[in-house]
Each structure stands twice: as structure tokens, then as C-alpha cells.
Amino acid sequence: MYAFNYHRAKTVADALKLYKKADDPKFLAGGHTLIPTLKQRLARPSDLIDISGIATLKGVKVSKTAVTIGALTPHVEVATSSAVKKAIPALAGLAEEIGDPQVRHRGTMGGSVANSDPAADYPAAVLGLGATIETNARKIEADKFFKGVFETALKDGEILTKISFPVPEKAGYMRFDQPASRFALVGVFVAKFKGGVRVAVTGAGPCAFRVPAMEKALSAKFAPEALEGITVPADDLNSDIHGSAEYRAHLITVMAKRAVAAAK
């Protein structure tokens, strides 16, 4: 790790003030992506602003229509919340499968979403449920949030504060693990709302994306067989030693069918 200055922020306002004063700062939440990145010297921030102690950014609230999760809520809290399990079981199930128990104790939802790792799980739920991302400055729709590899609509110095997930009639998430890291080689989140179905894919492209052809078919008939023959072109998909773009394209349809079958 390169050297950096460390600051602890007590409030969002405090964090923003510290951020403005520093040369090339980064916010530190659970640190389970940022610290490994720093250890590999892939980033060299001048200052780390630790926001993990800001109490107002933690916690889960569930109403009849939405599950709202504070950005600093660790995965374990979403995974084990009986209210989340009841309202959106697929969301609790997704959180339960991130990393391993120790990673889930520290890693945060906001950190994962703000980072937009191409193989992260949470972006599939954010996009699949059509969530609303709140920051210190504004609200951003999920459809306008993910921009590319590690790239989001967040501006420099903007803090993700919470995410509100609409409660669907049913939803399912299925992930095909990259066998070594257990990150998503392909993960598909399917959500059925009164007004239609949303399908979001992670692991396969530069960032999470929707599949309109599948949404249309599932809106007409919410069953795995409705997806028969519907594929995503391999052209823009990721290709690496773990799987070719064509393999990932094939997996999208397979995992989408399984997600529909598992939806509840």
C-alpha cells in the first residue's frame, strides 16, 4: 500500500468537507474492495475518508411498497433481516451469497453498488428491481446509474446514502459462480411487478444491464419456457479465461430460466 492520510467522518456533511479539502481522496466504507485494491497498489489516493462510522447511513426499513437500505448496511444485515426475507426474499438471498461470512460482516451494499464491479451481485438487484439510488445531493433511477466498468452516475465527491427497492410480486436471483473466486460469471435477477417484468444481468457485460426481449416475453407469460430461444448477442459481452462471451451469452438464458423458476 502507498501511504495516505486517514480521516474519520462523523456525519455526511463532515465527510463532504474533508473530501473537498483533500488532494485526491477516496471514501472508505466497509473497505472490502478498496483495501484489497490499495494493497495491490492499483490506486493511490492521497486521503481516505472513513465514512463507516456515520450512523445515519446504516439500517434497513421495510414498508408495504419498498425496502430501503442504508448505504453502509453490511451484507449480513440484509441477508439475515426477517423483514427483508419476507418482503423481497431474492434480495436477502442475494446478500447471503456474496463472498464469505467474514466479507459479509464488513462489505456494504453502498460500497458494492458505488463500485459497479462487473461481477458484483447487488447491481443486478438494483437494476432488476428498478431501485432508486439516493445520494447526498439527489435521487438517481437505477436505469441511469450503471455506466460501465467500475463507472456509475455518481459525481466526484458524491456519497451514496441509501437505496430504495420497490417490493415486487415475486423475484428470483440465480448466479453461476466463477469457480475460483465465486464472483458471478453470470447472474440474473428477475422481478415480476404488476406493470411488467424486469430482467437484469451481472457478470456478463461491462456493468449490469437489462434484457428487454426477455422482459417482454416474461410479461406475457411468467414461466421459464417463455424464455426458450431468447438469447443475448455475445458481441459486447465479457470474455476471459473463465468463460468466452458466447458461453456467457448461453448462460444468461439458462440462469434467467432458473431465476424465473426460483422466483417467490
Partner: peptide, 24 residues
């Protein structure tokens, strides 16, 4: 952050101490 040889408890909860700053 993968192997878990560094697991300790912070306030009773198991964490990977190679992925936590002492300052945290």
C-alpha cells in the same frame, strides 16, 4: 481477503484482519 488465516473478532464478529485498517 480470501484464505481466512487472519480471522479475528472485532466486537464479537469474525472479520479478516488483513482487510481492516488498524485505524478502523
Amino acid at each position: 481477503s480470501q484464505c481466512g488465516a487472519c480471522v479475528v473478532h472485532i466486537n464479537g464478529e469474525s472479520v479478516k484482519s488483513c482487510t481492516v485498517l488498524a485505524a478502523q
